[in-house]
Design a protein around this nucleic acid. Structure first.
Lengths: 300, 300
DNA sequence: CCGGATTTGCAACGAATGTTTCAATTATGC
DNA sequence: GCATAATTGAAACATTCGTTGCAAATCCGG
């Protein structure tokens, strides 16, 4: 259970033992939790018709050191975040440096990754993913481009997608054939572009080219105003915050996987059969080590 | 349409015409809308790395009188969100169960990914990662191998690692040169192998070869008894559970990134300088897209 | 009714807020 | 190439913030 819930229950359980003025404050907090998150303490006190000091005293009475802590819990509730992670993520914002000990660093990374994924699967993002799927499902050909650190995410999608659809093209610029691979791209296709700051020229140019051919673009990136996101038909903006020196592309990979999962779910039985066929082919090519079974997740 | 939406679209549409510093601020606002609602203007400015006055000027530029008004819109969005989602969810339940199922699937994926990462950064795993780092830091050459769906994780590590060390080799079997790339591998090197069920033959054979040459192996895999994990000097066993049809390699990517972060932290200032040099080289190669848009001339 | 303990509100504090002003710098047009 | 305009960051501004100290008010057992 979240910290917010704890505080709320403490307010309720201790309500009877509080002084009359504190009860007025507590009552207002219980009735208007959003005011705690959004308005200032003094504003809350005015609304509850008590002096500010009463609210401070109420904090002390329920065992909270500072109003800031109290407010943070209520803000996290509004964000619908797991409080513990959000709290740690915020700690990172403040500390910045002094992460020299390995254990600290790793814990910070974990917290950041979890927070990033949490944001990536927020309701509004889910809507965007579904929109993106619509476009992909309708497309004649599905191009995927991602360079540098974003390449894994692009590759990941292309690899999985090609297991059940033959119209996927990974634009990886092998042998310099960057333009070659985009040949024939048009309005009925779709280009999925992955990239974050610093944006790599090849990716930006691929997007620009696709746009010029009136091909819709799905952008998986770090900003709504990223050069690859302008004019995109679907923007999947993921956070790549990381306490380490490098930005994290974990979330991009996760989102790309989620897109595949949505497509598979949408495709139904037919897609599953295609995947089975593809895996048989791989097995026939002797790609798998002996003990192997299907690629899929069903563990025995 | 809410006021928030209007403001957001105004920011996006006017983005190109804003001054560089205002773009920085606008970008941060677009990418972190919750910060607007919950944090102070100065805190936002700090996060965006601009002076407070820039934010005030941005308000004037987009036709908003005061920060208070701007913030109110973002706060209202936060308050309206839950309601609108509840409404939409009900809508979907009545009409089509399909889309509702999509949302459920995505939430399950998110939960699984978060759980996987949580396990990957458990204390005992952190110990293993530190051990792995010791071996990597001591190694003459660092080979990385991962095929199929595991390739992104391997690539990710190799890409980042090569930014600050020249002894990294990504064994990707391009042009069939799988054996070539492992030539000369020996006891003083280290091989990082990534793979999960079904284990791909190439990876297993690369590990076997390395072992025969008495090269220590670090295995990032899904099981302690995976063929690539036997005799491994460090086993990083990650969970790849996913409600989708495919297994998830998100955690592998995350762990590989964490290894890089540890190595960077261990390397200290010297490593940071090397990274800076590497990025300058990339910039010299014209690899990056020009950021500071000089296209903001036409003032109307 | 009283005296000690608790509760309450006011005032003041330092810190932080949002905004404005103003030089210094940078870019731009002619 | 220079004059003009636009952009920028630091400093100062009046407010507002959360908190604390203290005196007045209130309560309550004797």
């Amino acid at each position: 259970m979240g910290v917010y819930t704890d505080l709320r229950e403490k307010l309720i359980s201790d309500y009877a033992t509080l002084s009359p003025q504190m009860q007025k404050a507590a009552r207002h907090i219980l009735d208007h939790p959003n005011d705690v998150a959004l308005r200032s303490m003094r504003a809350l006190a005015r609304a509850a018709n008590v002096p500010p000091s009463t609210v401070t005293r109420l904090m002390a009475a329920i065992g909270v050191d500072t109003w800031q802590q109290f407010r943070d819990s209520y803000q996290n509730r509004l964000l619908d975040l797991p409080a513990s992670y959000a709290h740690r993520a915020r700690e990172l914002q403040n500390s910045e440096a002094d992460i020299h000990r390995d254990a600290h660093l790793l814990q910070s990374i974990a917290a950041a990754e979890i927070a990033n994924i949490g944001h990536a699967f927020a309701p509004e993002m889910c809507e965007c993913m579904k929109d993106a799927c619509e476009h992909i499902a309708r497309a004649r050909q599905v191009f995927v481009v991602g360079r540098g650190a974003a390449y894994p995410a692009a590759y990941q999608f292309a690899y999985a997608y090609r297991l059940f659809n033959e119209n996927g093209v990974l634009v990886d610029g092998h042998a310099g054939a960057f333009g070659d691979q985009l040949r024939g791209i048009g309005p009925r296709d779709v280009l999925i572009a992955v990239g974050a700051r610093p944006y790599i020229r090849d990716t930006v140019r691929a997007v620009a080219f696709a746009r010029k051919q009136h091909c819709p673009v799905i952008a998986v990136c770090d900003s709504n105003v990223a050069p690859i996101a302008v004019d995109a038909v679907a923007k999947l903006v993921v956070s790549d915050r990381s306490p380490s020196f490098f930005q994290s592309f974990t979330t991009s990979v996760s989102v790309m996987q989620a897109l595949v999962a949505l497509l598979v779910a949408r495709g139904g039985q037919k897609v599953l059969q295609r995947i089975a066929v593809a895996e048989e082919q791989l097995a026939a090519f002797d790609a798998y080590h002996e003990e192997a079974a299907p690629t899929r997740n069903s563990r025995s």
